[in-house]
């Protein structure tokens, strides 16, 4: 464990909590892509199957449980409790265009052809594109509430810190997980455009982030 990975995990947790509390307190999921949240729940489900078979540390186990619980709780808020405020019209990204290539690639490019390993690889590839429906929805509506942009900021920060974590681990331990790194770089690139808008608009106190 290193400070980059730890702070990355904390940012990830903060992002998920920001989103959950926003929906819970505003009793609305307007502007939130339910599809992205479904994909994240699928990412955690397919990645954390080793929750009961491989014990790594208390921290690892606790964080996995927390991420799974919050992911499913957020999905249930969107699709059940506050479904009247779910804007399915704007959340129109075709997730099958993500799931099919990701599933195909996880069968082709993996470390070992076992169910657990293929599902883990699937979760790694899926996570790198899971945010796209949300980013697409923002471009479609042309705006995002500032709290939603803070959610995206912490999510992007978590991914950026993980890149630093991999540089550190390669330098310190010679550890290099090619699938995770390549997929993580792709994922972080998707946030670059958002980061630009976030720093130039939201942090200038313009409240909402409205796209040009």
């Amino acid at each position: 464990m290193n400070i980059f990975r730890l702070s990355g995990d904390v940012c990830h947790l903060v992002a998920i909590i920001i989103l959950f509390l926003k929906i819970w307190r505003s009793k609305s999921c307007a502007g939130i892509s339910g599809k992205s949240q479904l994909l994240f729940a699928l990412v955690f489900t397919t990645r954390y199957l080793d929750l009961f078979t491989a014990f790594i540390s208390i921290y690892n186990t606790v964080m996995k449980v927390v991420f799974l619980v919050l992911a499913y709780a957020t999905v249930s808020l969107i699709y059940f409790r506050f479904r009247k405020s779910y804007d399915s019209e704007s959340d129109s990204f075709r997730v099958e265009f993500l799931l099919v290539p990701v599933a195909g690639l996880s069968f082709l490019e993996n470390y070992s052809f076992t169910p657990l390993e293929i599902l883990w690889t699937f979760s790694i590839y899926l996570e790198s594109v899971a945010i796209l429906p949300q980013l697409f929805m923002i471009t479609k509506t042309g705006e995002a509430e500032s709290i939603t942009t803070h959610y995206l900021f912490f999510l992007g920060l978590y991914r950026t810190l993980y890149l630093a974590n991999w540089v550190w681990r390669y330098h310190e331990e010679g550890f290099f997980d090619q699938i995770a790194v390549v997929s993580g770089v792709v994922q972080t690139i998707f946030y670059c455009d958002f980061f630009y808008l976030y720093f130039t608009r939201v942090l200038r106190g313009s409240g909402k982030m409205t796209l040009p």
């Binding site: 990975r5 995990d9 990830h12 080793d50 491989a54 790594i56 540390s57 690892n60 964080m63 996995k64 991420f67 993996n110 470390y111 070992s112 052809f113 076992t114 390993e117 883990w120 993980y162 974590n165 997980d177 995770a180």
Partner: peptide
């Protein structure tokens, strides 16, 4: 296919 790497990251 070399061996699966340790899965210690979240």
């Amino acid at each position: 296919d070399d061996d699966a790497l340790p899965k210690d990251e979240l």
